[in-house]
């Protein structure tokens, strides 16, 4: 990965918590099935727990390693995706408006998601999650400044 800025490391924790919440129902279902004594001891719970551990511990880390952004002087580059990779560049001169979102979980860790909207049908909104809130606000100001300078 060439000279990309990494996302905030706290993003790994946030994605882990999200993954844990998502796998929780499956884990509960596995325990219920296990307690029904259908298969030999541990035949259901063990693989499910192993898989869940992989999803909770490993995938967020790899996802974090695969993501990155590059804030150029006139463009924002966002690289995302583990299996399906996408490498998007949005020139500041094409940004329609800028969103800064914080979900409760993100807020608890001081993170924000920056979304830039373009007029294009494809990539109408490009999301960049896992930014420290201050950085995200600074990026928003920088893009806004650029737009203003360009139009004057």
């Amino acid at each position: 990965m060439e000279d990309l800025t990494k996302l905030d490391p706290r993003f790994v924790t946030v994605t882990r918590i999200r993954a844990a919440l998502a796998t929780l129902p499956v884990l509960i279902a596995a325990i219920v099935l296990e307690s029904a004594d259908l298969l030999p001891l541990g035949a259901i719970v063990v693989p499910v727990v192993l898989l869940a551990t992989f999803i909770i511990l490993r995938i967020p880390l790899r996802r974090w390693a695969a993501c990155g952004y590059d804030m150029g002087s006139d463009r924002l580059r966002v690289v995302r995706g583990l299996l399906f990779r996408s490498d998007t560049v949005v020139p500041f001169g094409r940004v329609q408006h800028i969103d800064l979102d914080e979900s409760p979980l993100e807020r608890a860790f001081g993170l924000s998601t920056l979304t830039v909207h373009t007029a294009g049908t494809h990539n109408a909104s490009v999301k960049l999650p896992g930014l420290a809130s201050d950085d995200a606000a600074a990026m928003r100001e920088a893009i806004r400044e650029h737009i203003k300078r360009e139009t004057l």
């Binding site: 399906f84 990779r85 996408s86 490498d87 949005v90 020139p91 373009t118 294009g120 990539n123």
Partner: peptide, 14 residues
């Protein structure tokens, strides 16, 4: 008149 550029790759393409 283009708005953004994206290079996308699936697993096989990669």
């Amino acid at each position: 008149k283009l708005q953004s550029v994206e290079i996308a790759q699936g697993p096989i393409a990669k």
